[in-house]
Nucleic acid binder design. Structure first.
Lengths: 193, 193
DNA sequence: AAATGATGTTAATGTAGATTAACATTTTTA
DNA sequence: TAAAAATGTTAATCTACATTAACATCATTT
């Protein structure tokens, strides 16, 4: 199993010994999904945290009216999971679905305690990763409160130009919390200045 | 210095030895603020993470139109900080202000690495705390996208009845992302069913 | 106890973005 | 290569919530 992409990612944050790498390798698994496949479904208990090696996923919530609300995308070198369901082992509020053929490296809930115990550096890595995710999430709340949809779209485009290229526009709209029709209007406004 | 409230909080999540408690005590400080005082101001670098022992704080963002947007309140046993500024030691986007006389126990940035190194259990505690905060933040994003202001108000009221009692209504409105006038309307609607 | 400031309410009017619906374009499949 | 499915656009109409403004109530200070 090739976990090199994960090791490269980790090495940017903490340095593992050969022994730790060997142990880590024994604790994770590689998984491949086709475009359209679900990694997690609303209501199921999330048993795993995925590191995306290639491809792209979306995490979304389907509300009582059947409307889909995208919370995040994950591409190469990102983490993709419903952390809430994972940490409390309760039914998930979210779906995680592949929007391209996707390859992941997977940590499973049962191994997690042992992995943290044997490699405390990984606990540090996850602490830092989640700190950043939390900060980004707070900033998104602020933007949703204080900025217009147009401003939010421009920031998204600017922050994630690669992602905007590879996903359909109606998913960008969903991520921004607006309808595809309104995003279409915004884009035509921008085109004419 | 009385750090008992912090120790009680910690003991619910991880068990510290006497030695660890002694060390921890040497690393934190107690601080008192009056109602209205700022613990952190937008633009300043956040040097500390506060555990609230008594009182209440609000963290908020002032946008370019001078409008205030409240991200969170913190009461007894909660953490109150701009984590983004803290972890990256960059100017803060947020203000933290006391809305009651408030007493905190403070971890400072300079001690943090050492504290984690000496008491890895605290790194575990913070990982878990931030995981929960992140999950709550994601759920808030979903609610803001998929629910009406009235629904969000009812959930807030239900989730934090104590907080709703002790803060002015216009701050609840700001937290919900609506105007005080509209919250007033919602409340009168609810009163007549 | 009056005055000041902070907080809350009501109502008229305005607007960002939703909804609906019809159609255009692109991609995928048979 | 035609048909079907997925994606994107345009325009009319609607609505949740913002804005403004005037006033009411409560708390704090002098």
């Amino acid at each position: 199993m090739n976990i090199q992409p994960l090791l490269n990612y980790i090495s940017k944050i903490v340095a593992l010994t050969d022994e730790e790498i060997t142990f880590l390798t024994s604790q994770v698994a590689s998984r491949k999904y086709l475009k359209g496949q679900y990694i997690l479904q609303q209501g199921d208990i999330n048993k795993s945290v995925c590191f995306v090696v290639s491809g792209c996923t979306k995490m979304f919530y389907v509300d009582t009216d059947g409307q889909e609300h995208i919370l995040m995308f994950a591409v190469e070198d990102w983490w993709s999971s419903d952390l809430g369901s994972f940490i409390s082992q309760t039914p998930s509020d979210f779906n995680v679905q592949c929007i391209e053929d996707t390859e992941c490296i997977v940590f499973s809930y049962n191994n997690m305690e042992e992995t943290y115990a044997k490699i405390p550096k990984l606990e540090r890595l996850f602490r830092k990763t989640i700190e950043k995710a939390f900060v980004a999430s707070q900033k998104r709340i602020v933007r949703n409160f204080s900025m217009s949809a147009k401003e939010r779209y421009l920031i998204f485009k600017d922050s994630y130009p690669e992602i905007e290229q590879r996903i359909p526009q109606y998913m960008v709209a969903s991520y921004l919390g607006i309808t595809k029709e309104f995003l279409s209007k915004i884009k035509s406004q921008i085109a004419f200045q």
